[in-house]
């Protein structure tokens, strides 16, 4: 008997935007929370800034810019791929299309790139996304975090990122979160490695 009421209620049509509205509600809640992403980048960025006071000038690069490298510290071992993937929102392969410019709103120069996603390992990104990399050019200085070279247009990378909901971009982890892909064989090996890591991911506590 109760099936009839269920059947009647199930006649209510589901609008196409239903899932979008669910996401919006969750995104709003996340934006109001002291999100792990923000805490994490605070953790990364502040030591980075502190270290910048003790910067190491590596000398001018081939184009005459002074290169400053800064060190960061991490709350966990970022070289452990299971922990790194567990902490990340997205792990994907993508090709850098264009350097979109720099920003330093948070007291740390960052460079943003348009990236075309070609393969998801964790997460479900599609099309073009903005990848945010700590470091970049400011005046006559090139700031590199842990000597992590800036992304190059036209190159393919494996990215390990956290999503910034406010800016809708994906900030990569220096060094371990932007692995330059050398060839198809290398790409396949990376996909296999990080797919395994995802299956055995260790969530960040």
């Amino acid at each position: 008997m109760s099936n009839n009421i269920r059947q009647e209620i199930n006649k209510i049509e589901i609008p196409a935007e239903l899932s979008t509205r669910s996401k919006k509600g969750i995104e709003r809640a996340k934006a109001e929370m002291p999100s792990r992403s923000e805490k994490k980048w605070y953790f990364l960025a502040v030591p980075a800034l502190a270290a910048a006071l003790l910067f190491a000038i590596a000398g001018p690069d081939p184009f005459g810019y002074d290169v400053i490298t800064i060190q960061t510290s991490h709350a966990f071992d970022v070289s452990d791929s299971k922990k790194l993937v567990g902490w990340a929102d997205d792990v994907f392969i993508g090709k850098v299309i264009k350097n979109e410019g720099t920003r330093d709103d948070d007291g740390m120069v960052e460079t943003q790139f348009k990236v075309k996603v070609s393969h998801n390992i964790k997460g479900d990104l599609g099309g073009d996304v903005i990848v945010n990399q700590q470091g970049g050019y400011t005046g006559n200085t090139l700031v590199l975090v842990e000597n992590d070279q800036l992304l190059k247009e036209g190159e393919q990378y494996l990215f390990i990122t956290r999503h910034n909901t406010k800016g809708d971009w994906h900030t990569l982890v220096p060094v371990y979160g932007d692995i330059l892909i050398e060839n198809d064989q290398h790409k396949d090996a990376l996909i296999a490695k990080y797919r395994d890591a995802y299956e055995q991911e260790i969530p960040f506590e």
């Binding site: 509205r21 919006k24 509600g25 969750i26 809640a29």
Partner: peptide, 14 residues
């Protein structure tokens, strides 16, 4: 009804 869904998602995740 969509507002309810969005608000429910918001409140429940928080």
């Amino acid at each position: 009804a969509l507002d309810v869904v969005q608000e429910t998602a918001y409140r429940s995740f928080k």
